[in-house]
Amino acid sequence: MNIQIIAATILLAPVIGGLIAGIDRIITARMQHRVGPPLLQPFYDVLKLLGKENIAVTNDQSLYAVLYLVFNVITLVMFVLQMDLLLILFMLLLAVASLVLGAMSANSPFSKIGAQRELIAILAYEPILISSVVGMYFVTGSFSISRILQIDRMLFIDLPLLFIAFTYVLTIKLRKSPFDFSTSHHGHQELVKGLTIEYSGPSLAMIEIAHWYETVLLLLFAGLFFANNLYVAVAAIAICYFAEILVDNIAARLTWQIMLKSTWIPGLLIAVVNMVWVYIKYHV
């Protein structure tokens, strides 16, 4: 049974992730008054990249791209198998760490600065991610997803502020404007493509696929706040992602200083308020 679930996850997640990316690109194009690419464009891109020559500037670089993919797949599989949320967060961190290491291993100032900025981004979003998990723990009494799913209460009702904080850091995780400074979907930034500048061909394709897994994971995570009702959860995920696209199109890229300030001061503040509130509600 488990093996079937694992296989289904590994096969289906990139399809869903790629379709989401395709829809994203079409909606973005429409918001800019363009027609936009076909829906399957992300798949074409990745397939094309797989068929290209792989130019690696260091020996380990391609390995880190593979690791990034593998860790993302493992994280998603762990999520689907309803394992421990804290463990999932740490696995996700490992994935990002391998991306950073890959960027650091290339001797290019662009990718190094991109890696440094990504580290700062981790610094910004990780407290919020952990506090939303802790908030869930306060409500359900467990870090395990299987236990969280058994609660017949909508987590969102108890954790609205944490959900807001989570969608805020989702912008950083999905690398959308205004926080797309380590790498961005379009290359027109001061770091060109930042983290992924030194990757080409199959390695870049692997990073793209890993992004799809990551997107699916993060959206499932957002759905966890509405887990007791499937329809509400799907609607919430859709609204959430649309909001991300909208924000992507109405904001300029900010600097990491502003990002750190905005995630740590108002973001952590509302997260802590929410956590204290649910702690008092359920534990005092």
Partner: peptide
Amino acid sequence: LADAFGFESLFMQCWR
């Protein structure tokens, strides 16, 4: 300029 500060939709709007 909009493109330089990462505001892609504004870039498109100006060029349109």
